[in-house]
Amino acid sequence: MSTELILSLTSLLAIGLGYAIPLIFASMGELVVEKSGVLNLGVEGMMIVGAVTAFSVTVDTGSVWLGLLAGGIAGTLISVIFAVLAIHLLTRQVPTGLALTIFGLGLSGYLGKDLVGKTVPDSIVYPVPILKEIPILGDSLFTQTLPGYLAIIIGLVVVYVLAKTRIGLIVRAVGESPEVAHSIGFSVRKTRYAATLFGGLMAGLGGGYIALIQQKFWVENMTAGIGWIALILVVFSSWKPFRLILGAIFFGIISGLSFYMQAKNYPINPNLLNSMPFIASMVVLCITSANSKRSSANAPASLGQSYHS
C-alpha cells in the first residue's frame, strides 16, 4: 500500500468517525425509545433544538461542556412534549413525531436568528496514548474530542444495559408486549416516558455535538437530515445495538466521503456528493427490507402502537 493511500484512508476514517458521533448519539437514543415500543419521528426536531441551545449557551459562556449539557436538556424538554402527547394523551405517534420535527426546525430558526455568523472555539482533541499508534485506525478512532469519546462510551453502555440488565429487559419487554408487561405489574407508561426522555437527551447531545464540535459556526437547519438518517439506522440495524454502532460509522464514512472528494477536487457534482448519505440510506433500506419478514422479525412487536392501561 502506498503511503498516500494509507494517508487517504486514515483521513477518510477520521472524517467519517467525526460524522458518525452525532449519529451514534441520536440513533442510540432512538433505539432505546423504539425498544420500548414508541416510534418518535421527531429526532431531527430534537437534534436541531439541542444544536441551537448548545450553540447559544457556548457563545454566552465560552464553555463547550455547558453548551453540550444545555443541548441535552433542551432535547429532553422537547421530547417531553412528545411523551405527554403520545404516551399520556394517546395521540398517534407518527404524526406527533412529524409535528415535533417541524416544530423543532421552526423554533431553532427563530432562536438562531441572532447566532448567524457567530463561532465557537475549537474543542481540544485528546489522542489516547499507545492506541493512537495503531496504523490507520489509531488516528481516527483514538483521536477524538472528549464528547466524541463520551458518545462511544454511552453507545457501548446502551449495548450492555439492553442486553444484560434488568432495566434493559424491562424496556424490551414493554416494547414486545405492553399488555403482558402491565399484567405482570410493570408500568408501561413510566417505562415509555423514561425511554422517550432518554431519546430526547441523546438527540439533544447529538445536535449539540454537530453545532459545537463539527460545524463551530451557526447556520440555519444545521443538522441537515442527520436525525432522519439516525431513524433509518435503527431500522437498518434490525434494532440490534452493536450493529447500530457499526452502521453509524458506515454512514459517517459515506458522509465523510462526499466531503473528502469535494476537498480533493474530484470532478463530481457536489450536490450529488452531498446527497450520497441519503442515496446510501435508500439502497440500504431496499436491501434490508428485501426480505421484509426477516428484517422486521426483530422489530419490537408493539412499535408505534399506543397503549392504554
Binding site: 429487559l169 424490551r172 419487554a173 414486545e176 408486549s177 403482558v180 408487561a181 399484567s183 426483530n298
Partner: peptide, 9 residues
Amino acid sequence: QHFALFETL
C-alpha cells in the same frame, strides 16, 4: 389463559 409471556425473550 392467554399466556403473559414475551415471545422474543
